[in-house]
Design a protein around this nucleic acid. Sequence first.
DNA 1: TAGCCTTGCTGCATCGTTCCACCGGTAAAT
DNA 2: ATTTACCGGTGGAACGATGCAGCAAGGCTA
Lengths: 353, 353
Amino acid sequence: MSGVTIYQVAREAGVSPSTVSNFLNGRPGRMLPQTRTRVADAIDRLGYRPNRAARQLRTGQIQVVGLIVPSVANPFWGNFARYLERAALADGYHVLLCNSEREPDRERRYLEELWADGIRGVVLCSSLPSLDHVLPLVSAGLSLVAFDRTAQAGDPGSLVNISVDNVVGAHLATAHLLELGHRRIAFVSGSLRSVNRRERFRGFTDALEQAGMDPTEAIVWSGGAEQEPYGDLDAAGLGRAAAHELLHSDKPPTAIVAINDMCALGISAGIRDAGLRVGQDVSVVGFDDIVLADLAAPPLTTVRQPIGDMAAVSFRHLRSRIDETDTGPSQSLLLRPELVVRASTGPAPDPRE
Amino acid sequence: MSGVTIYQVAREAGVSPSTVSNFLNGRPGRMLPQTRTRVADAIDRLGYRPNRAARQLRTGQIQVVGLIVPSVANPFWGNFARYLERAALADGYHVLLCNSEREPDRERRYLEELWADGIRGVVLCSSLPSLDHVLPLVSAGLSLVAFDRTAQAGDPGSLVNISVDNVVGAHLATAHLLELGHRRIAFVSGSLRSVNRRERFRGFTDALEQAGMDPTEAIVWSGGAEQEPYGDLDAAGLGRAAAHELLHSDKPPTAIVAINDMCALGISAGIRDAGLRVGQDVSVVGFDDIVLADLAAPPLTTVRQPIGDMAAVSFRHLRSRIDETDTGPSQSLLLRPELVVRASTGPAPDPRE
DNA sequence: TAGCCTTGCTGCATCGTTCCACCGGTAAAT
DNA sequence: ATTTACCGGTGGAACGATGCAGCAAGGCTA
């Protein structure tokens, strides 16, 4: 224990504990300036720090939010966690970290634990289409911000969804390739079950359609669904396998849109395996703009998720829900992605060569 | 609030709150079997969950440990965080996440906050040679496990250090290259100020010496010290720059030992930039074995840190310090690294070619 | 049968903070 | 002259769980 209590401060300052409490809790106007300085001095002198447990017991408030991510070992989530923690810290909040491994049951158990800990706000990063498993907690009063996910039918009544605009993002990526003259473009991902992957695919087909192409004839590679539903951890391995397969087909694509950067890096490796040059023989676009995208050889053209902003927005919304300054109905917030052109994309190779 | 208190459970079961408390706190033998089941049933029926704040206020105990890492955006730390959280969860503990960005001042502030939150155990991931900035907290009673760091003179009295054996690790890497016939081997890192980097360098020179070579003639590239003391974030960019420089020197190395995997990946990119083949023209060894090492093209030979074990061991030691089952003096624990041979290393090229 | 132990349970003070109710005193409003 | 309002504070009851001291009731010894 820090040891020093509000009583000791009160005695040191020659006032009552209530006055010290008033001083600490935004009512410093309730006392004479001299009293105020006496209290402030006493706090300094004794090195007093309020006991959070006692405060929480009394008020029911706690300055901690929960963060549930699939796995913080994934650089994308690690990065998000870092920015969320930064935003929280700026408001004096701490972040409790939970890794769900995308298992609904673990998500639910975590939420229950957090609730029992007195935590009233959680950022849930789960692309699961259904949130049925967390409904009871939400109706009990838990504030939830769902990240990387847009609203779905059957969602709880008061949910904030925050996500990048996946349709726009994939559209940007695809349009970029079309502009470079590519016509045989492939879309590569793992299973398409999760919400955001479905959206990215739609952005892809929309762009093709706008260019007057038939999206039903698009090359779509979507494997690995059986072993690992969301193709999360081995996205890169998946991409590599996809590249091998696609490049050895009759009419190989000249450009590939990947579901995310890890996948794109795998695809790049696969292209090299086939003796081709990334960005010259075959162009590749990723999604996310993880740190590695810029470090790869060649650096990866990708769709940047404004992850810092998204984390800050997530925290801000969560806080206003917790503080009940915002009690509105469910809403979705889509942040605008940005195309970052690097060297993994280039003009379509001349077919006459 | 979960709402239901120990009093309601007591009334429901027809006993006193004390009995419910006894039931919950490992003294179920102090009552008749029938009483026990009545209490258990009441808890079930009401869905009672103990209020942690109240419990913490009363006992001073809290089932949360702190984790301070340089940045969870770095895959290595993200991975460690994941495993630490797993170990903690198995014991019913939660993990509070803090990103220090390697700033001593932030480390200190975090520790003070955690202390005020009632947290009595923290895993501190800091390679800073001096821990002076956290001494006051430790002597106040905070249990500290220092990760990725070995004991130094001037450390606080009761500190557990957990780290991989860096000397052995770098020795393994270097010996592997020597066995492959390489003689011109370079060591590449950012600043050498941090503890583990110094150790890895020693492992490198030791291995050269054992092979009958003069370590003072070894090729050492250690740049970027001015701009960014620990070369953490742009380790890859650093590696790339190093590769460019080294490969254009009079007598370029045929093999390179990198301070870590990110750096090694950068070096690989630099080798390709120079029109050479990684693993054939120039061999590269990394350190850490991050997920990406296996996904790179070519896959990276590296020294694996048993990160899962290290996280589990860290938590176990931390807990026994918190519980005061282990109050021994300061100690260091070195886990054994393992060489993982992949395709980024190969026989030294024939000098006659 | 008095004295003492054991068993199974309860009463109550306590952890540190908050915040509502209230106090005496003075000044302004009615 | 009485009411009302405010000022600068204080008192004390919570918040929910814990664990010590203690208390009946029954059993044991002598």
